[in-house]
Amino acid sequence: MSRVLNAKDKDLRTVSAELKSCLSDGEIVIKNAAHLHGLCGGLKTGKITIHGDSGDYLGVLNDGATLRVTGNAGRYLADNMTRGYVLVEGDCGYGAGAYCYGGTIVVYGHAGDFTAVMNKGATILVAGDVGDEVATYMLAGDLIIVGDAGKNLGNYLIRGNIYIRGQWASLGHNTRVQEMMPDDVAKLRGYLEEYGIQADPADFQKIVRLSERPFYKSKPTR
């Protein structure tokens, strides 16, 4: 039996206090939370379902909680997450998975521009398409795109892998297409099966960095 919190007409502080007071009670469902930005921030435990849409910065600094959104999520989903899971049944906006150090994000719909920007270790799986400038300055982790991508995919990629099944409008600086290895296929199969996404891992292409030091344009004076 899950606990239900109704966030209608309540502010972030009130809902957060209610949420933290019942985190140990088991699964929690939050309704009418689309107006709240930064909800479920910095949680270390908990299994929370956002019924309907969520606002921006959902699960910011998440450190272990499992969040599920039954509708669409706003911008900056799971911003700077370090651990945990964030699953969105619909679409999500700009900057999903920005600055993440770890954890897993699964978006069953589409994701916007700058998804996985400066990703430093999270696994981000998008079942639909993604926008432009995705995985800009990514430093670690995996981004799996089942659909298509826009312009400048993987711009200034430092480390980490981008797997994409569809097409991209253009690749960003410091990227190259690398042959898929059996390990890659096995990894993708594991993720796709775990999250129930219908796609053949063999159809994906892998994009990796060209150089580990793409910024070296200038040197110190001595």
Partner: peptide, 13 residues
């Protein structure tokens, strides 16, 4: 507006 939200969630966290 985003900056206000950033301040709000940092206070909350």
């Amino acid at each position: 507006e985003d900056m206000k939200r950033m301040v709000a969630f940092l206070r909350d966290i």
